[in-house]
Write a protein that binds this DNA or RNA. Structure first.
Length: 468
RNA sequence: GGAGAGGUCGCAUAGUGGUCUAGUGCGCUCGCUUGGAAAGCGAGUAUGGCGAAAGCCAUCGCGGGUUCGAAUCCCGCUCUCUCCGCCA
């Protein structure tokens, strides 16, 4: 979530920022939010005035009841209560909640102070309830709108309409050249009998696949390499639940917008992780961290389960776009001051492992129109796959600033000053396995159909140098 | 899945309808005291919302209900613990 105070104080600036995202529906929400926020604050003001008055009367009543005598302290409290009650009554009359209401200026003056008070309090209770009912409706509308507002782009992000304008950096590593026609990975894998697509589909339906023999071993080796790389860069390895409850999906920004992208067990009321980012973000939900704990670096390998409904029919061959894959996620909780420097080092940590594999890759600077829902700034890492001639996205590294921290209520207490602040959170893939496997199969393929195992993986594959 | 016990401020506890504006202890911070420290004494020590501010409002796991008034009574949910059952 973004800060309502920001929307309230600089609505035009916020709208300009959202305008860069090429998301007209989000833009419309801002005006609705401003309107609802106004109603909301009016109701809160009215409700609290009445509530304060009622509390005073209740207090006075309690004092009268609890003691036979009225001492100075009680008199003072009752006088205060009566004063506020009068204010509330005037307020009430002005707002037309009730006509002809009467609350005596001095409730203790009459012969039956207890009865007089009781009657006044009963009336006020109804007023407060009326306002709270309205407030509940307005609050619900407010929360709903706020949950749908995307994060605002950082000023350094290039403004452009869509992903075709993303800015590629220089290519690192050598793009392989072949003296034969290179094959796509699904043909290589089928020939080597390391991926079984047909039986995968038999088990799980469309886009199912089974990694077999050295294919499965290759993935396991990659996961180990990724986790070792994460450890070398200071990340603490985690093993996390692969499913979460609904509130966690809101915390990381998946819900409400991407509800139909995740698998759901209705019986157990839990949602399968589309990425470990969800689990790690929510690990510190509703916590106040000490500044000395920051930054926190975490890494976790999990399956990523995605329904990919919208893309049925796209990228149907091979394992480029599948419902289930393994990924090592890199995640940081940082102070606001350091988050952009931390984003750069996060991308470096992910890049390092691609270098180890000797694969040609480039960094893509993501433009505003392709930022997505939660990021203020994002880099993708793409590996070139020489068989299909495509650049494959294997990592996406984002700073969300305090967007997720607000949703998940994750704060820290600065060393100086006691006011708590929201942390900044960053996430990045380090890396996702299927597309890295595609790149290895296609870039390291030989004329005879065999595939060289990258040196960095050999220690994790019993020294194996060649598949096939 | 069944039975039971619980969830109160950072921790530990008190609190069975109204002077609860949630007390006390520990911890922590500041001050006094001291040559210095400890002890002792005093003050402070949750989060959020509204407000220019004073201040007010909310929160005793969450949500409903009863009541003029709920930490307290009732209902639902949730989490933790103990025992039973099942289980890699």
């Amino acid at each position: 979530m973004i800060d309502i105070a920001l929307i309230r104080e600089k609505p035009d600036w916020v709208k300009a920022q959202i305008g860069k995202l090429n998301d007209p529906a989000a833009l419309e929400r801002i005006d609705r939010i401003l309107e609802i926020d106004k109603q909301r604050r009016t109701l809160i003001g009215e409700g609290e005035t009445l509530q304060a008055a009622r509390n005073k009367l209740n207090k006075a009543y309690g004092m009268l009841r609890g003691s036979k005598q009225i001492d100075e302290r009680m008199k003072a409290a009752i006088a205060a209560a009566a004063t506020i009650a009068i204010e509330a009554r005037d307020f009430e009359l002005a707002n037309g909640y009730m006509s002809g209401a009467t609350i005596p200026a001095d409730v203790t003056a009459g012969e039956k102070p207890l009865e007089t008070l009781l009657e006044a309090m009963g009336r006020m209770g109804a007023w407060v309830e009326g306002i709270n009912e309205q407030l509940k409706t307005v609050d619900a509308a407010f929360d709903e709108e706020m949950l749908w507002v995307p994060n605002l782009p950082h000023e350094s992000v290039p403004v452009a309409e869509n992903d075709s304008f993303n800015i590629p950096g220089t290519v690192e590593g050598l793009i392989p050249e072949f003296d034969f026609t290179p094959k796509p990975h699904w043909e290589i894998a089928a020939a080597l009998d390391i991926i079984d697509f047909e039986r995968g589909i038999k088990l799980a339906g469309s886009r199912g696949y089974i990694l077999k023999g050295l294919g499965a071993q290759l993935q396991r080796a990659l996961i180990t390499l990724f986790l070792e790389n994460a450890r070398e860069h200071g990340f603490t390895e985690l093993y996390v639940p692969n499913f979460v409850r609904e509130e966690s999906m809101f915390g990381s920004g998946q819900f409400p917008k991407f509800r139909d992208a995740v698998y759901f067990d209705a019986d157990a009321d839990v949602y399968m992780l589309p990425t470990a980012e969800v689990a790690i973000t929510n690990m510190h939900r509703d916590e106040i961290l000490d500044e000395t704990q920051l930054p926190l670096y975490y890494a976790a390998q999990t399956p990523c389960l995605r329904r990919e409904r919208m893309s049925a029919g796209r990228d149907v061959r091979g394992i480029k776009r599948v419902h289930q894959f393994e990924k090592v996620e890199l995640y940081k909780f940082t102070s606001p001051e350091t988050s952009y420097a931390e984003l750069e080092s996060l991308v470096e940590a992910a890049s390092a492992v691609i270098r180890k594999l000797g694969l040609p890759f480039r960094r893509l600077e993501i433009v505003t129109g392709d930022l997505g829902f939660s990021a203020t700034k994002k880099y993708d890492l793409e590996i070139f796959a020489a068989g299909s001639g495509e650049w494959l996205e294997v990592s996406s590294c984002s700073n969300t600033e305090d967007f997720q921290a607000r949703r998940a209520n994750i704060k820290y207490r600065p060393d100086e000053g006691k006011r708590t602040r929201f942390v900044h959170t960053l996430n990045g893939s380090g890396l996702a396995t299927p597309r890295v496997m595609i790149a290895i199969l296609e870039n390291y393929q030989q004329a005879d159909g065999r595939v060289i195992v990258p040196e960095a993986l050999r220690p994790y594959m019993g020294g194996l140098e060649v598949i096939g």
